[in-house]
Write a protein that binds this DNA or RNA. Structure first.
Lengths: 232, 232
DNA sequence: GTAAAATTAGACACCATTGTCTAATTCGTC
DNA sequence: GACGAATTAGACAATGGTGTCTAATTTTAC
């Protein structure tokens, strides 16, 4: 009955979809609730309540539950990507202090991309809903581990020129580095609270040490590998 | 009105709760559906249909949805534990062929515990429902990674006597070994189909090589580390 | 202040799900 | 075949969710 290009009703939803307070408030609340309850378990009413907003406002901004869900995912992805590039941009160019540089890098990566709220959220969501939305799984694989992997791979390729690194397969080394960095974290990045700074630092140091024992052509300080222990 | 110790009704549910065909059929179907849809998204009707059983039969065997859910979790845990011990029992006692032994071990571990249906199921479930049922999370952590970790740690302690292994922290080495073994698997053990035998073998070999480059006191065949490449 | 836009509370139809109940039917065993 | 146990289909009330609608109210811009 109603023509698709009918005149907008005098009263109703917002006209410009830019960032306003209500909009981000809804997005944040939705992220929380979706993460806690999953897609099926999350109720719009709960999201609205947590956002201190009426249900109708939620529907005004996001046409239906699935629209809201996808908006949440996109938002998280964008944030995580920004964080990743910001970290990569600050890696020192020279190959001196490789162990310390890698450790600091690993700490920042975990702290701002992998173990933080966004990282845990997106992984949980992909595992929960990835089968229902293959699109979601694919996006995550490309923009998440894929992007980190290739960036890290390129980093190692660059480093292997300045520092002495004995790597024959950069992609593999990148994956192994990431795996090692997360090996010693409590609950392996699952929920249960973010790891403390000490835990992050300790895990990163252990990972980098093993990584360099495997791939580092020459030990940084000389002979053995049990020499540098002090700076904790 | 009804006394708790009232006489059983003449007709109704099953009397002995042992393993009968219907019972395991329900359990299997429930595992499938819970894994696919999560706790909230799974419907008893769907489970009953997939088990080729009437809804009432489901309720006869498992009083309510949560009872069924917990039974499923317990069942999976038991199976995974049995598989783990069966694998550990067959590790060779002598330290010869350490690289091959570790590789074979890693393949079997991934194939029968980590990457198989049960492993993926339980991890997904823990991540989805662990916050709602902390009890579930705790059980998994102790019986899953915890058990594998301590077993592996003990294995390395034993091996470091017969073979030449330069490990100072067995727990850490165990965690790193597990992480490395899963580093190169497509989708990191997420869903999307189990990895093929070739992928498992390749990932295990790469992991063990890196692990031994870091922790192996002496290379098995002599000088460099890029000598043995043939047997794929 | 006023008019338009945004928001709100609440009612509403609709649908799916849980868990119960009953009467009929099948299965297994003697 | 007969008996009791197990199973089935279907109806059922209760609950809680989605998405729409409306009329009133608040916020924002001019």
């Amino acid at each position: 009955m109603k023509k698709p290009n009918a005149r907008q009703p005098k009263t109703g939803g917002p006209t410009q979809k830019g960032q306003c307070a209500k909009r981000v408030s809804i997005l944040d609340a939705a992220a929380d609730v979706f993460c806690r309850e999953g897609f099926a378990g999350a109720s719009i009413d709960e999201i609205a309540m947590e956002a201190c907003v009426s249900r109708q406002t939620v529907y005004n901004h996001y046409r239906e539950k699935e629209t809201l869900f996808m908006a949440v995912v996109q938002d998280i992805m964008d944030r995580a990507n920004a964080a990743l590039f910001s970290i990569l941009a600050t890696f020192p160019d020279n190959g001196e202090n490789l162990e310390d540089d890698l450790t600091a890098f690993a700490v920042r990566l975990n702290k701002n991309c992998v173990c933080n709220h966004d990282g845990k959220f997106i992984r949980k969501l992909v595992q929960t809903e990835g089968e229902r939305y293959p699109h979601l799984f694919e996006i995550w694989r490309q923009q998440g581990p894929g992007k980190i992997g290739t960036a890290l791979s390129a980093l190692f390729a660059r480093l292997s020129h300045v520092a002495r690194l004995d790597i024959d397969d950069f992609d593999l080394a990148a994956k192994q580095f990431l795996a090692l960095v997360n090996a010693d974290l409590p609950a392996s990045g699952f929920f249960g609270g973010a790891p403390t700074d000490e835990e992050l630092e300790k895990a990163a140091r252990a990972a980098v040490r093993t990584f360099l024992r495997a791939y580092g052509g020459k030990p940084a300080t000389g002979a053995g590998q049990e020499l540098r222990e002090e700076p904790v």
